[in-house]
């Protein structure tokens, strides 16, 4: 007895593989002409050996269109003379823009600024994150509530954080300046100097991301078995020694991951800088990401910005590989 096939998925593998059998089935179904070949096509496409590929295909196509293709395209552009704002067609330039970018003192200056911000911010995040993790490892009243509060900055948008801090730092109205004036008599113009502005950014970034470090470290701390602390107590270890020899080894791996991850992320810092200082005063806090944005979308030096972006991508790839290496090593350890 032949049952009409109404569902592609219900067609058995055997039937869909042998055309004869498949014809046999479909001949008895009442479908308008053309429906048959359509269904054959669907059956062919969703046959078991193809089904997996078909199901991931849309995601892959999207990935290719949205990520890989633009990536390749911009990579290509970095070897051509091209301005996005101009109607002139691209001309081949070879490594001209790479050479230009690498020999540009401005780029090195921006990288230096970025490095200063990364170093300070990541260090601060590590210290604060670690301290908070140590605090939250203990049980105390309202721990859960406090933990939730502490985690909120991480979930805010960069723009919101940027605007908050810009308002905090505002010398006339800002709460920071008002507080400073209360004690020292004069308003605080934090954003007037290079280091003041750098600290302003670092504080905002660290405020936002210390909770992330805390989460990772907390995971490490929680994984330390209690009996090791007890053993250390029986072995008369001091607080510091217990921390160094028992606690820290469990956290070290995660801390390293946090360090790398935050370094990669902070290396790309843009939004917060753009909003709080816009790179000022002068160009004192213009990070490399802000600079790329400026070159690419304000000056429309498309080729140059592509070349610079690829050099930065290379840096990030190196850091990412380091990160993955340590992730794998940690997995082996556990």
């Amino acid at each position: 007895m032949n049952k009409p096939v109404t569902n592609v998925a219900s067609a058995s593998a055997d039937l869909s593989r042998t055309p004869a059998a498949s014809n046999n089935v479909t001949d008895n179904t009442i479908t308008p002409a053309g429906g048959k070949s359509m269904r054959d096509f669907w059956q062919w496409m969703f046959s078991p050996e193809r089904r997996g590929a078909m199901l991931v295909a849309p995601a892959l196509i999207m990935l290719f269109l949205m990520n890989i293709f633009p990536l390749m395209w911009s990579f290509g552009l970095s070897f051509f003379h091209y301005k996005a704002s101009s109607i002139r067609p691209p001309r081949f330039a070879g490594f001209y823009y790479y050479e230009k970018v690498l020999t540009d003192p401005v780029v090195w200056e921006r990288l230096q600024t970025t490095a200063q911000i990364v170093a300070l911010s990541v260090l601060l995040q590590m210290v604060i994150g670690f301290a908070m993790a140590l605090m939250f490892e203990k049980k105390f009243p309202f721990r859960r509530e406090l933990l939730m509060l502490v985690l909120t900055p991480m979930m805010l948008s960069f723009v919101a954080v940027g605007v908050f801090f810009k308002l905090f730092y505002e010398p006339t109205f800002g709460i920071l300046s008002q507080g400073y004036a209360y004690f020292f008599g004069e308003p605080l113009t934090l954003l007037a100097t290079k280091w003041g502005a750098i600290w302003a950014i670092v504080i905002a970034d660290a405020w936002m991301w210390s909770p992330f470090v805390m989460l990772l470290v907390l995971a490490g701390l929680v994984s330390v078995p209690d009996y090791l602390y007890e053993a250390a107590a029986v072995d008369r270890a001091s607080w510091w020694r217990r921390f160094k020899t028992v606690t820290f080894p469990y956290v070290r791996g995660l801390l390293l991951l946090a360090l790398l991850f935050r370094t990669i992320e902070t290396f790309k810092i843009f939004d917060v800088v753009y909003i709080i200082t816009a790179g000022g005063p002068g160009t004192s806090t213009e990070t490399i990401a802000v600079y790329v944005y400026k070159v690419a979308f304000q000056f429309f030096k498309t080729s140059q910005s592509s070349a610079l972006s690829y050099i930065l991508l290379f840096v990030v790839i190196v850091l990412t590989n380091l990160y993955l290496y340590f992730v794998n090593r940690r997995n082996e350890e556990i």
């Binding site: 505002e170 010398p171 006339t172 113009t189 007037a192």
Partner: peptide, 23 residues
């Protein structure tokens, strides 16, 4: 000018706000 001038951020919207807020 108000101290925000020292930060290089005293743009047209800031001075507008300054006079509207009576500073």
């Amino acid at each position: 000018s108000p101290p925000v001038a020292k930060t290089g951020q005293m743009d047209i919207f800031v001075i507008q706000e300054l006079i509207m807020q009576g500073k």
